[in-house]
Nucleic acid binder design. Structure first.
Length: 424
RNA sequence: GUGGUUGUAGCUCAGCUGGUUAGAGCGUCGGCUUGUGGUGCCGAAGGUCGCGGGUUCGAGCCCCGUCAGCCACCCCA
C-alpha cells in the first residue's frame, strides 16, 4: 500500500482490482457463469440498493443487519441500504415479479458490510451466488451444493471441505431452542455479556470460535436430535444425493449460519489451504419462509453465496488459477508514420485478432520494447521498403524464426491462420 | 465496536545507541542504436520519512494523538 499523503484513496476495507490481476476475475466469473448456465440457472441482476426493509427481513438478530449495513435516506426521504447479502434481493425480485417456479437464478454482485476488515474480509466484497425459489425437494438441495462444489473444482481447488447440517423446520427448532436456551442459562457465568445474544437467538452462540467456550459448545445439546421426522428424512435424502454424486461431506452439528432466515439444509465450503481466520469460501442453505415474510406466496427455497476475493485467496494458497498470460496476437510497429498503420491495426482488430501499437512517435527500438512487453505473439512491421512492394514484415516474438514478409492485404488472414495452428 | 501490530521513492526494503546533503534493488523514462525487442552499459526523474503536536541544540529514529494498512475477536463470502 502506498504511504498515505493527501492523495485520494479507496474507502476503508474496499479494494481496487487492477490488470493483470483482474483477468483472473474474468476467469472466475466466466467459469461460474458457464457452470450455472449448464445447470439451467439464468442471470439475475438486481439494484445495488434496496429499501431498508428488504434486508431488515433477513433478521433482527443478525449482526449484518443490526450494525453492519450502509444505510442512507435518499432525496425523496426513502430509507435505503446498500446490499449486505445476496439472497434478500433475489427473493424481493421474486415476490415482485412472480416468475414461474422453480425459479433458478444466478448472480454476481458486490456486497457491503461496515465491519472491521481483516484477512479475507472486506467492506465491499463480490459474491457469485445461485438461488432456486419455490421448490422443496432434497434433490434440489443436492443440485445447488453440486453447483458450488463443481465450481470450486473448476477453479482447480482441491483442499475444500463441505460441511452440512440441518436447521430443521419451525417445530424442530422451537423444541431445540428451549433446550438450548436452558443450557446457556446453566452456563451464564461463562457467557457473560453474550447472554443477551443467547436469549435473543440461542442458535447463534453455537458456531462461536472462542476457545474458552469450546468445551461448553461441544457438550451442548445437538440440533440433530430434535429434528422432526420430516426434517430428518429430508436431511437424510440430501446426504444420499451427495453420496450418489461422490461429493464428500462432513456433518457439522454446530453449523447454523448467520442469517435468521435459514431453515432445514445449511452448508458451507471451507478452504483447508487458507490459514486465515476467514476460510469459508461459500455457504448457504434453505430459507423456506422468506418469500412469505416479504409478502409473497409460500415459496420454499435454497441458495448460496461465494466470495470471489476469498476464492482467489484460496486459489493463491493452492497455487491454482494463475493470472492468465496476455492474449495479444499482434503488435504493430510503425517505421514510416503513415495513416495506413492506423488502418492496418483496425483491420486486425475487426478480423478478431487482439492487437495493439505504441503511440507518441516512439523510435523503432522503443516500439519493439513495447511490443515485447505487451506479450504479443507477433510484431507486424510497417516499413517503407516493404510498403513499396505491398508487403509488411512479420516477426515472431516468441521464437528465433527468421522474420518474413506477408502481403499487406493478406496479413490478417495470415495471422489468424498462424494463431489457429498455435492452438492445435 | 474491541485488541495487537506496522507506516521511509510506483513496488520490496536498508537507514548503527537521535547528529547535519535519506540510500539500494526492481519498475518507469531517456541515451548507447530513430529498421528490430527480450540479456548489457550509461544517465534521469521520483521522498515535506502517513499526518499533527511535543521533547531536544538537533527527530526518519524518542513521547502523545490521529489516520491508514495488516492481523485477530465478534460475525461472515
Amino acid at each position: 500500500m502506498p504511504a498515505d499523503r493527501n492523495v485520494m484513496r479507496a474507502p476503508k476495507g474496499m479494494l481496487d482490482v487492477l490488470p493483470p490481476e483482474s483477468a483472473r476475475w474474468i476467469d472466475v466469473i466466466e467459469r461460474f457463469a458457464s457452470r450455472a448456465e449448464r445447470f439451467a440457472y439464468g442471470l439475475l441482476l438486481t439494484p445495488i440498493v434496496e429499501h431498508y426493509e428488504v434486508f431488515a427481513r433477513v433478521g433482527e438478530t443478525t449482526d449484518i443487519v443490526r450494525k453492519e449495513m450502509y444505510e442512507f435516506v435518499d432525496r425523496g426521504g426513502r430509507r435505503l441500504a446498500l446490499r449486505p447479502e445476496g439472497t434478500a434481493p433475489v427473493v424481493r425480485a421474486f415476490v415482485q415479479h412472480r416468475p414461474p417456479t422453480p425459479w433458478k437464478v444466478w448472480y454476481l454482485a458486490p456486497n457491503f458490510r461496515a465491519e472491521q476488515p481483516q484477512a479475507g474480509r472486506y467492506r465491499q466484497h463480490w459474491q457469485l451466488g445461485a438461488e432456486v425459489i419455490g421448490i422443496d425437494d432434497p434433490d434440489i438441495d443436492v443440485e445447488v451444493i453440486e453447483l458450488l462444489w463443481g465450481f470450486c473444482h473448476d477453479l482447480g481447488l482441491r483442499d475444500v471441505r463441505l460441511l452440512v447440517n440441518s436447521m430443521g423446520d419451525a417445530d424442530s427448532r422451537a423444541r431445540y431452542r428451549e433446550v438450548l436456551l436452558a443450557y446457556w442459562r446453566a452456563h451464564e457465568a461463562l457467557l457473560g455479556d453474550e447472554m443477551e445474544r443467547a436469549e435473543a437467538n440461542p442458535l447463534r452462540i453455537l458456531d462461536s470460535k472462542r476457545s474458552d467456550w469450546l468445551e461448553m459448545l461441544e457438550r451442548a445439546p445437538q440440533l440433530g436430535e430434535y429434528l422432526t421426522d420430516a426434517s430428518a428424512a429430508h436431511f437424510e435424502r440430501v446426504q444420499e444425493g451427495l453420496r450418489a454424486l461422490g461429493i464428500p461431506f462432513e456433518i457439522a452439528p454446530r453449523l447454523v449460519r448467520g442469517f435468521d432466515y435459514y431453515t432445514s439444509t445449511v452448508f458451507e465450503l471451507t478452504s483447508g489451504a487458507l490459514d486465515t481466520a476467514q476460510n469459508a469460501i461459500g455457504g448457504g442453505g434453505r430459507y423456506d419462509r422468506l418469500a412469505e415474510e416479504m409478502g409473497g406466496p409460500a415459496a420454499p427455497s435454497i441458495g448460496f453465496g461465494s466470495g470471489i476475493e476469498r476464492l482467489l485467496l484460496a486459489c493463491d494458497a493452492e497455487g491454482v488459477l494463475p493470472v492468465p498470460p496476455p492474449r495479444l496476437d499482434a503488435f504493430v510497429v510503425d517505421l514510416v508514420g503513415v495513416a495506413d498503420t492506423t488502418r492496418l491495426l483496425a483491420e486486425l482488430r475487426e478480423s478478431g485478432l487482439a492487437a495493439d501499437r505504441a503511440y507518441g512517435g516512439r523510435s523503432p527500438k522503443k516500439q519493439f520494447t513495447a511490443a515485447d512487453r505487451s506479450g504479443a505473439r507477433w510484431a507486424v512491421i510497417v516499413g517503407p521498403d516493404e510498403a513499396k512492394r505491398g508487403m509488411v514484415a512479420v516477426k515472431d516474438l516468441r521464437s528465433d524464426k527468421p522474420q518474413c514478409e506477408v502481403r499487406r492485404e493478406e496479413i490478417a488472414a495470415w495471422l489468424l491462420t498462424g494463431k489457429d495452428e498455435a492452438h492445435s
